[in-house]
């Protein structure tokens, strides 16, 4: 798929109506309105009441080998993007392995797995005693086509109906090579004159990949990682 960049505006003073001024700026470029899009994000935390090897229960075990306590709660993020209609992206922190703990390696690798919509109710209902829902965010907005090479998606992100920040996704249709397109996307955002914000390209997340995976080509996993990178760096996980 074509590459994207995620631009997040959450400076103080950003309010729910800031999006209209951004949409106005986009309108000045004579875009074609293509319709609506939406995202849904849920964050789950492991239930501290129960323990497993790899959770706190084995901590004593690990500490025998390594004289430093380190219990870090693990999280599971679930993301649904309307762009990838029936896919549910699940990013989960891997438990610390015995071998890594013994060797003193601090691993914070994550695994990203894609399932169909059925996964939503499996985590939310069937596994609810193991994974507790901590946060739920939604966004809905419009998609604009600017010229032949850019798609811009804007939306307000809300948590329980309260405005939190706004996101702009820029899709550059002419390339599927992320590294080569970063500057073009950043340049486009400057040209549009959007308010102060931060760009996410999703390349800082350390996720487990299949050995044969070619990281060069941009696909839905890389697309989803841009959102995960942003949501996961927020203080609550």
């Amino acid at each position: 798929m074509p590459v994207t960049g995620l631009y997040v505006v959450q400076e103080p003073g950003t309010i729910a109506s800031t999006i209209s001024s951004i949409n106005d700026k986009i309108t000045r470029q004579f875009p074609k309105v293509l319709g609506k899009w939406s995202i849904e994000y849920k964050l789950f935390r492991e239930n501290p009441e129960i323990s497993t090897p790899g959770r706190q229960g084995s901590q004593a075990h690990i500490d025998q080998y390594q004289q430093q306590p380190q219990s870090k709660a693990r999280f599971l993020s679930q993301l649904h993007l309307s762009t990838h209609d029936d896919d549910v992206f699940n990013l989960i922190d891997e438990p610390m392995s015995y071998s890594a703990a013994r060797a003193g390696i601090k691993s914070d690798k994550k695994v990203l797995a894609v399932f169909d919509k059925g996964m939503d109710s499996i985590i939310g209902a069937k596994l609810q005693s193991m994974w507790l829902l901590r946060q739920s965010m939604r966004a809905e907005g419009h998609v604009f086509a600017i010229g032949d090479s850019f798609l811009v998606r804007t939306a307000n992100v809300t948590q329980n109906g309260t405005f939190k920040f706004l996101i702009i996704e820029v899709e550059y249709l002419a390339s599927d090579d992320l590294d080569a397109s970063k500057e073009i996307i950043a340049g486009f955002i400057t040209k549009c004159g959007f308010p102060q914000g931060r760009l996410f390209f999703g390349d800082s997340l350390d996720i487990y990949r299949e050995p044969a995976e070619d990281p060069k080509k941009f696909g839905k996993i890389a697309h989803c990682l841009q959102y995960m990178e942003f949501f996961r760096m927020r203080p609550s996980g």
Partner: peptide
């Protein structure tokens, strides 16, 4: 009954069946 299908990623070689991603994910789910 709850059901879901695992979706192999389209970015990787078609001959790799993504099996380790699925099992690592289940392991991380405890």
């Amino acid at each position: 009954i709850s059901k879901t299908k695992f979706r192999p990623s389209e970015e990787i070689d078609q001959n790799v069946d993504n099996i380790s991603t699925l099992f690592r994910f289940l392991r991380a789910l405890d």
